[in-house]
Nucleic acid binder design. Sequence first.
DNA 1: CCGCCTATTTGGTATAACCAAATACTTCCA
DNA 2: TGGAAGTATTTGGTTATACCAAATAGGCGG
Lengths: 236, 236
Amino acid sequence: MVKTGTSAGRAADQIVRALEGKIRTGQLVDGNPLPSERELMEEFNISRTVVREAVQMLSGKGLVETRPRFRPVVRKPGVDTAIETISGVVGHLLDQPGGVRNLFETRIMVEAALVRQAAKDATRDDISALKYALDENRMAINDSELFYLTDTQFHAVFFNISRNPVLPAVQRAYTTWLAPHWMRMPRLPDRNRRNFEAHKAIFEAILMRDPDAAEEALRTHLAEAWAQVRATFGDI
Amino acid sequence: MVKTGTSAGRAADQIVRALEGKIRTGQLVDGNPLPSERELMEEFNISRTVVREAVQMLSGKGLVETRPRFRPVVRKPGVDTAIETISGVVGHLLDQPGGVRNLFETRIMVEAALVRQAAKDATRDDISALKYALDENRMAINDSELFYLTDTQFHAVFFNISRNPVLPAVQRAYTTWLAPHWMRMPRLPDRNRRNFEAHKAIFEAILMRDPDAAEEALRTHLAEAWAQVRATFGDI
DNA sequence: CCGCCTATTTGGTATAACCAAATACTTCCA
DNA sequence: TGGAAGTATTTGGTTATACCAAATAGGCGG
């Protein structure tokens, strides 16, 4: 074919667009493997190099999943895919001074909004989900590893209450990105109990249908958590 | 070199990691061009194929910027880079049923939190920034194109008040992603005036330092905006 | 019918070559 | 001498071919 640099710009992009379309329209089904590189180069009349480039772009966009020696697998993107896509860049952001702080601040903001919402709109089911998570948390006070898990679970409930599939993914992102700064902190039963009490305070404010109190309790809780992080890592 | 498939996994990844490190440590300076592909293949003792693959990966991660026929330019990632990275995937998400709704809901949530914060903590400067944006908005009521701009500007102020660099980027993301569903709506001076009044109501609630009223006004405003979108596009 | 062994497919990498745009260099004229 | 025009070199984009090693498919024998 030897059409070097003709028309408008890069060649792999056309293939990307074509495959992207096939994924969107369902011609390429989620979970199925992509056609082999040799097939694709025939189908589009291009060299294997370009095919590989296109596949790689799709991989970067999260539309296919490539394992070292396997056929690429089509993956219709969900919210998690989106978040996974930026994880790399976020890693760099967190390296910058104040990066962690900025991220954590947005988390406080979002979760504050969520507990307000919970205080206002939580259904009976939401309440019992919260209560269950809280009980699990209490019972794990003496097992710091388990406490961390149940802690995360408790907070996760708020991100689920909204019934908006974006938010749970956001929470997973927060926990993933902040985990390195969180898990290496000294975790003692004493501290666990204190955190549990904070959770309990939030829960009770929600029971009372008091958004202001709930937000206040949440902010206090997370501010303290931040203080712990600061105490462990210094200025970051 | 011909060391095919040795050790753990793909070879381009090593180059990516190496270059990634050089970018982070500043050996490769932001804004400067990357070494040429031929140089890199000597430096790392790899084929040009692999070099190109690596560069492309970096491009996918947003660490370098590649224009069709130019040297790749190093780009230390900022928040905007991160958001740009997921834009592709988000495009797919918005295609799914309810995708736009879900995204818009999170925007309402975030901005509601921001106006609350503004009502509580806005400085004199913040207030005057808001007032300025509001005035600009009022004067554009008869110019729908300009009104859209000033509308966006007004909302942007809230995302700036926090002094957290993540939030303005988030706002840019929201406007970018939702713009297609927003700009094609019928825009009449009548409607503009109505939106301006909504902005004014929010502003006044902030002046009164009344978070609840501010949030309420914001939610009403955005709910109406959503209703307009629905009326234009049907169920999405 | 199941397990082992071989043949083929398929992704990963290398090499060589070519094109066209971009850049560097030289030359020539005012 | 300075700048413009023209030429040579660099450099990214692409094709083609070949080889390796892992993964899968196929066949063979127990």
